[in-house]
């Protein structure tokens, strides 16, 4: 083993979407502070496979560099753990102390049903994007990229909103499991760009309708989403979503 920390884990185990789950205790010894949180799970899983008593813990992960948005652990009461602006895969064990007890749960939301252990189904996000999170431009339709100047401030703000990785930490953090930060990031990005203007009304109406259909809760502006967002997406996006929505309802022919 490569380190000398001992960690007590309480991990949510659930066989599949239909069964009941519970927290199970594991002790992981010889943890190195240089390990990432997921690498500690790798070590534990290797041990579980070798011992053959318990199945390894299922969890979602892929790029392990904080950009794909797949990793999704709710660690000691917070999505992606105690550090600001990082995903679970970027969290390292030096953020914990020897002997710590860490509770690890899946994202909890009616719209994110558990598949197994710590893995949940976030396809609701894909359906929200499919309902309007795009610009309808067929390949080959585009004009020259520089024919449409965009003020740098708008471009930068659109980029900051577009940095969303769709991990769902906002939903997990929100006491209402609201998806407003996610939806607002996409609505904002496209509302700030002139390319997004022709569809701005239908986009926001359809995306909000889909969001509600999926069973996410309403926003109560607690700010937990933005505080826990690994990409630090701003709450001003939610205000913009509200504006866009009411403007579309009150000021356009659409509903």
């Amino acid at each position: 083993m490569s380190g000398n920390m001992n960690i007590n884990l309480k991990v949510w185990r659930q066989k599949n979407g239909k069964s009941q789950g519970k927290l199970v205790d594991y002790k992981v010894e010889g943890v190195s502070p240089d390990m990432s949180f997921l690498e500690m799970f790798d070590v534990l899983n290797d041990r579980l496979v070798s011992e053959g008593k318990d199945e390894p813990i299922a969890f979602d992960h892929d790029c392990r560099e904080g950009i794909c948005g797949m990793c999704s652990m709710y660690i000691n009461g917070r999505p992606h753990g105690p550090n600001q602006g990082v995903t679970t895969c970027q969290l390292h064990m030096r953020s914990f102390k020897d002997g710590d007890t860490i509770v690890v749960e899946p994202w909890r939301a009616a719209a994110f049903p558990v598949i197994k252990d710590l893995a949940v189904d976030r396809s609701a996000f894909d359906r929200i994007i499919a309902s309007g999170g795009f610009i309808s431009v067929n390949t080959g339709n585009a004009q020259d990229a520089n024919s449409l100047p965009i003020p740098k401030d708008n471009a930068d703000e659109a980029f900051a909103a577009a940095a969303c990785i769709g991990c769902g930490a906002c939903v997990a953090a929100c006491k209402n499991s609201s998806a407003m930060l996610f939806v607002s990031a996409k609505v904002s990005q496209l509302a700030l760009l002139p390319q997004g203007d022709p569809e701005r009304n239908t986009r926001v109406l359809n995306m909000v309708a889909q969001m509600d259909t999926e069973g996410f809760g309403a926003c109560t502006n607690t700010g937990a989403c933005s505080a826990e967002c690994p990409k630090e997406i701003s709450l001003t996006n939610i205000a913009r979503l509200n504006r866009e929505y009411f403007a579309a309802q009150l000021g356009s022919d659409r509903s």
């Binding site: 610009i135 990229a145 520089n146 740098k152």
Partner: peptide, 19 residues
């Protein structure tokens, strides 16, 4: 580049608004 910009990719821009 044309296609990506048209579909809303927020590339870095100069103060004049161009790419």
């Amino acid at each position: 580049i044309d296609q990506s910009v048209a579909s809303g990719v927020p590339f870095a821009r100069e103060y004049g608004g161009l790419l």
